[in-house]
Design a protein around this nucleic acid. Structure first.
Length: 273
DNA sequence: CCAGTATCCTGCAGGC
DNA sequence: TGCCTGCAGGATACTG
């Protein structure tokens, strides 16, 4: 489910309420996830600590504590984080619950279990196998400068390159398609067959679409504290993703789709070359 | 090193 | 109403 804008929206919502709160108890059931979920271990490590300001790196959420240590979370395809009253009804597939000292509860829900929550000791961030390999943050002001040479050295389709978290983080199947449409580039075009100028344009498009999605998500932040306590999976106006068979917003040509980089990819055959 | 594929898991929509 | 198939916003182990 979540790409960078969704994770950033969750982070901002958590930033309203978590800092300063103490973990009163941890509960759940240990199960297999992308990393095994060990509730006993998390309970022993997190209980009694206070939350600091939450951080994000790519699609990863980093919940820092005092005394130092952090919960590293990834939402995979179907993960959700809820911040609700401890008494509120439990969703199915709620794997982990952290009771706060104010009667609220932080919950990790993930039906497909492609996500995970893990504990990192101070400093382990540097060596963590998932975090250590991550590429550039797309909202970095220098993106349009750093990305073109990186992509230009590869012959894989740009769609694949955008999804490669070792090159650029936070972009998933939706925003990869949207960024390519905005810059008028065909998703199958090879990195090394794209001019540096067009790659710079792609970088700016990616930056724009992510920033706009975050802005949209921001409007749902007040709902976060509402009855369901979920960060809304806001409806960004999508131009190509999921719109195969419909007319292109720019030229009315029928949007088509194919599997590129192992994932369904939609594009406009007229606008994108 | 690079590119491409298979795989983990559940839920849901659509076809019959 | 079932039952089956395919697909889903991700990351990574493996192959060639």
């Amino acid at each position: 489910m979540p790409e960078l804008p969704e994770v950033e929206t969750v982070r901002r919502a958590l930033a309203f309420e978590l800092p300063g709160r103490r973990v009163a108890a941890v509960d759940g059931r240990s199960i297999a996830m992308r990393r095994p979920l060990d509730v006993e271990r998390l309970a022993a490590l997190a209980t009694g600590r206070r939350f600091l300001e939450p951080r994000r790196r790519g699609k990863y959420l980093l919940l820092d504590f005092d005394p130092p240590g952090l919960l590293l979370a990834h939402l995979g395809m179907s993960g959700r984080i809820q911040l609700v009253d401890a008494s509120s009804p439990l969703r199915n597939h709620t794997h982990l619950r952290l009771d706060l000292d104010n009667g609220r509860q932080l919950r990790f829900v993930d039906p497909r279990r492609f996500g995970f929550v893990d504990w990192l000791e101070p400093g382990a961030e540097i060596t963590d196998p998932s975090l250590a390999v991550l590429g550039i943050e797309p909202l970095d002001p220098g993106l349009a400068e750093f990305l073109p040479p990186l992509f230009h050295a590869r012959r894989a389709p740009l769609k694949n390159l955008l999804l490669d978290q070792r090159l650029i983080v936070g972009i998933g199947n939706i925003y990869a398609a949207e960024a390519l449409w905005r810059s008028g580039i065909h998703p199958r075009r090879a990195g090394n067959r794209t001019s540096l100028a067009r790659l710079a344009s792609l970088a700016r498009s990616a930056q724009e679409v992510l920033a706009e999605a975050i802005t949209q998500g921001g409007t749902t932040l007040r709902d976060f504290a509402g009855p369901d306590g979920e960060a809304g999976y806001f409806t960004v106006k999508l131009s190509v993703y999921g719109r195969q068979g419909e007319p292109c917003n720019r030229c009315r040509t029928t949007i088509r789709s194919a599997i590129i980089g192992g994932r369904t990819t939609a594009w406009c055959p007229t606008c994108q070359r």
